[in-house]
Write a protein that binds this DNA or RNA. Structure first.
Length: 469
RNA sequence: GGCGGCUUAGCCAAGUGGUAAGGCAGAGGUCUGCAAAACCUCUAUACUCCGGUUCGAAUCCGGAAGCCGCCUCCA
């Protein structure tokens, strides 16, 4: 089967064909840095990470752009409320954002453009839209005239005439030609405080949508392969991006639009008023393992609404422990030979893994393939008693490949480090067991357990692992 | 009001016409000094409900209920 993605634009699964053979250029919606990102945001970033990693696994050269929205109503409000500069204000959240990406093992994109560093590109684009008569000036602001873009509403399936008007009436509404016209450039007013740019368009700041059009085209070209984001962005944000970009260039903007569903927390939509609103740090402060959080966010198909629960994270950690144990058990397996059984297991697992993910990133069959390999190889191991070096390599290389996509199935490195004191105690216990002094050996085992070290007496000797919370 | 999505075991979650993947939890067993890990066995006559199409439906069609989302700056 060929690699297939569900394209929001056509509302169906389509075979993925990049513009340039073997290369993918994609724009993935990033954070607005006005606050710490919450787990709903991270669901989107994890989905984008899975997409990126799988494309690489499939041999594509990926150029990914993730924007940092550091100029909008909320960042302006935030910095003015604190009485600090916009840059000082957003710097806090940019830094936190990258720390969180690290914790969740989200791979870095090639570019993280900041809106404030691309004012010129946005101004240039607005000028083109003005020249073409697609944009118009009203007061000190500039708006996009959507009646000039016949395809407006195509992505979201919105019919302009049917839009419920007056749902959220903006104060500036009255000065637009049509209620659905949106701002490309916002003239300065007092509420903006010190935040403004003096440009050919006047004193003010860009509208929200224009940054994504300007920055994506700067780094990826006028037409690129994939654009992603949360479902809430379909309308109006992505709809407006299409209108701006295609209005300016006259060319198709994006070939494949992909959107992730939202998540709920403990069965309810996540909202501050429900007291179920969590940043990643909130979760880590509760002692949750970051990789268990990653597993939970990763293991439900991206277009399926996900119900995030603390029980789910707990279950996820148990699953991960099994996968991590498998990795070390294979690494440490004694010598033996299955006579070809491993090769067929590995081949079947790979086929199932790829078959699942090729189908619009369906991770469930992919994880099933991983667990099938665990089960199958464990059976071989218990029946044959060992693996040949070639078999070990086969499994571990396949595992590395799977992990390059999933990013959770290898034991975290910090869990493989041990200090001398612990090492000494483990040796003392081994000696005690040799003397059949089980009272002493159990005492040491309990003591180590209290320190978070779990011991296992196996055929090839005593093994230890770090207890994960 | 308009548009869209979801409902599968205690929990999570695949499966979109041929008789229910996978994970977690639970019960019993093998192994072990005891454990742990691993393995074995068991755990949905059944997929929200009611109709219909079909030789055959969790899967298609119609209806109902519940939950969720978008409808101008929220992933």
């Amino acid at each position: 089967m060929a690699l297939t993605f569900f394209n929001t634009f056509t509302r169906r699964k389509e075979e993925f064909k990049p513009i340039i053979d073997g290369e993918v250029r994609m724009y993935t919606c990033g954070p607005t840095v006005y606050d710490f990102a919450h787990i709903g945001n991270f669901r989107a970033y994890i989905f984008e990470d899975l997409l990126r990693r799988y494309l690489i696994y499939r041999g594509f050269k990926v150029t990914q752009v993730m924007n940092l929205t550091d100029i909008d109503d909320k960042t302006i409000r935030g910095c003015n409320a604190k009485g600090i500069s916009l840059n000082d204000y957003t710097a806090i959240y940019k830094k936190a954002f990258f720390e969180d990406l690290d914790a969740l093992k989200i791979q870095s994109a090639e570019h993280y453009p900041e809106a404030t560093a691309h004012i010129k590109e946005m101004v240039d684009m607005v000028k083109i839209l003005l020249e073409k008569g697609i944009a118009y000036t009203m007061g000190s602001s500039i708006y996009y005239r959507i009646t000039e873009f016949p395809n407006y509403g195509r992505l979201s399936g919105m019919n302009l005439a049917e839009l419920k008007t007056g749902v959220r009436i903006d104060v500036e509404e009255y000065e637009k030609e049509t209620a659905a016209d949106f701002a490309l450039w916002k003239g300065w007013d007092e509420s903006d405080g010190k935040v403004f740019w003096e440009t050919e368009l006047g004193k003010g700041r860009p509208g929200w949508h224009i940054e994504c059009s300007a920055m994506s085209m700067k780094y990826l070209g006028q037409t690129f392969d994939i654009h992603t984001g949360g479902v809430d962005n379909i309308f109006p944000h992505h709809e407006n991006e299409i209108a701006q970009s295609e209005g300016a260039t006259g060319k198709r903007f994006v070939n494949y639009w992909m959107h992730n569903a939202h998540l709920m927390v403990e069965g309810r939509k996540m909202a501050k008023s429900f007291n179920n609103f969590y940043t990643l740090k909130d979760l880590l402060n509760r002692g949750l393992h970051p990789l268990a959080v990653r597993y939970v966010l990763l293991s439900t198909h991206y277009r399926q609404q996900l119900n995030f629960t603390f029980d789910g994270v707990k279950a996820a950690l148990a699953s991960l422990q099994r996968l991590w144990d498998f990795h070390t058990n294979i690494t440490d397996a004694p010598h033996g030979d299955s006579g070809g059984r491993i090769s067929s297991l590995v081949r079947e697992a790979r086929e199932k893994f790829i078959g699942g993910l090729d189908d619009d990133l369906n991770v469930s069959p992919a994880f099933a393939a991983v667990f099938d390999l665990v089960k199958g190889a464990n059976i071989v191991l218990s029946e044959v008693g060992g693996l040949s070096p070639a078999e070990k390599r086969e499994i571990l290389e396949t595992w590395d490949g799977f992990d390059s996509v999933l990013g959770v199935i290898k034991p975290p490195e910090e869990s493989l480090i041990i200090d001398e004191e612990i090492e000494r105690l483990i040796q003392e216990r081994i000696d005690a067991r040799k003397r059949k002094d089980y009272a002493e050996s159990d005492r040491i085992r309990d003591h180590l357990s209290g320190k978070g070290i779990i011991l296992e007496d196996t055929k090839i000797g005593t093994k230890w692992k770090r207890k994960v919370k």
